[in-house]
Computed example of a mutant assay.
Amino acid sequence: MSGGLDASRIDVRIDGRLIVDGVDCTVAPGTFSAMIGPNGAGKSTLLRILAAVERPEAGTVEFAGDKLFELPRRQRARIVSFVEQDSSTELSLTVRDVVALGRTPHHGLFSDAGADDDAIVARVIEAAGVASLADRDVTTLSGGERQRVMLAKALAQETQLLLLDEPSNHLDIAAQLSVLGLLERLALSGVTVLAALHDINLATAYCDHVIVLRNGRVFAAGPTSEVLTPELLSEVYGVQATVLAHPQTGRPLVAFSPSV
């Protein structure tokens, strides 16, 4: 798949248990895709493999034809950035300093940050909505504020592949919509974005493609409007749901029925 993310036959075992089982998945270049599934489906584990943070027991991961596990770490960090679910730092650094760490892969071994780096850091701090926090010590921030700082750090890497594990975690509704809107715009600009999401209606509102994991395997994948049917939601999540059309956007809107 030229230009996009392509993972083939990914196996991951933890303590002898198969967590990710023979997964094949693709994400087209310049798209915003969601990875969904119940707790324990393997989403976080698979994302860490796709980001080449950890190596699988078997399988390959390629982006734009590059085999990510064969690249030097610095070169890989110029291709893919990853925001973990609870990523943070306990170092006493300002928000601006933390975000500036995202520029590290673009520096030579003995080179310092320049004016261009400073401009990029300022731009992504603004884009992530943390400009008012730029001089704060990151250890004093709330979970949601830290989450947006780590998103800004990933944006500072200026990669063409951005992976995120629950980017709406800890965020209030307005911040969730702001972050998902930012990711949507990044995809429109050509960045390939894949995010694990718990909130199915965020996936339907912003993502045109969805990968559904269940028990460490890809249960379904394809256009969001085609994949997320009441039948699939019942089988994967064990819930009753009705899929409606959003009155303003026309995109799918999932209404869940209360348990009886």
Results as ranks from 00 to 15, higher is better:
residue 32 F to A: 06
residue 194 L to H: 02
residue 111 S to A: 14
residue 208 D to Y: 10
residue 64 A to S: 09
residue 203 A to P: 02
residue 49 I to E: 02
residue 153 K to P: 00
residue 241 A to E: 09
residue 16 G to T: 11
residue 108 G to P: 03
residue 223 P to D: 11
residue 179 V to L: 04
residue 87 S to C: 14
residue 166 E to D: 07
residue 174 A to F: 06
residue 177 L to T: 11
residue 206 Y to H: 08
residue 219 F to S: 15
residue 228 L to D: 07
residue 186 L to R: 15
residue 92 S to Q: 14
residue 104 T to Y: 07
residue 16 G to D: 05
residue 108 G to M: 04
residue 171 L to Y: 12
residue 239 V to G: 02
residue 55 R to M: 03
residue 117 D to P: 02
residue 58 A to G: 15
residue 159 T to S: 02
residue 97 D to Y: 06
residue 229 T to H: 12
residue 8 S to L: 08
residue 35 M to L: 15
residue 31 T to S: 11
residue 101 L to N: 08
residue 243 V to E: 14
residue 29 P to W: 09
residue 151 L to G: 08
residue 60 T to P: 06
residue 180 L to I: 03
residue 46 L to V: 06
residue 54 E to P: 01
residue 1 M to E: 10
residue 31 T to C: 02
residue 172 D to A: 14
residue 35 M to N: 10
residue 101 L to T: 08
residue 130 V to E: 02
residue 246 H to F: 11
residue 209 H to T: 08
residue 25 C to K: 03
residue 21 D to N: 15
residue 81 S to W: 01
residue 205 A to H: 14
residue 97 D to E: 15
residue 53 V to C: 12
residue 162 L to E: 02
residue 162 L to D: 04
residue 149 V to N: 03
residue 76 R to D: 09
residue 194 L to R: 04
residue 219 F to H: 15
residue 104 T to M: 05
residue 58 A to R: 15
residue 77 A to Q: 05
residue 55 R to L: 07
residue 203 A to F: 03
residue 234 S to Q: 15
residue 73 R to V: 13
residue 224 T to M: 10
residue 238 G to P: 03
residue 200 I to P: 06
residue 105 P to F: 00
residue 87 S to E: 14
residue 73 R to D: 13
residue 176 Q to M: 12
residue 65 G to L: 07
residue 68 L to G: 08
residue 136 R to D: 04
residue 189 S to G: 04
residue 138 V to L: 09
residue 78 R to N: 00
residue 93 L to P: 05
residue 20 V to L: 08
residue 189 S to F: 00
residue 199 D to I: 06
residue 132 S to Y: 00
residue 213 L to Q: 11
residue 32 F to Y: 05
residue 234 S to I: 00
residue 251 R to K: 12
residue 187 A to F: 00
residue 186 L to G: 13
residue 228 L to A: 09
residue 212 V to P: 04
residue 174 A to L: 12
residue 78 R to Q: 07
residue 118 D to M: 00
residue 177 L to A: 11
residue 233 L to G: 04
residue 221 A to G: 07
residue 137 D to F: 03
residue 143 G to I: 08
residue 100 A to G: 00
residue 116 D to W: 00
residue 165 D to A: 11
residue 12 V to R: 12
residue 66 D to L: 01
residue 248 Q to F: 09
residue 72 P to G: 04
residue 176 Q to C: 14
residue 109 L to I: 00
residue 4 G to C: 04
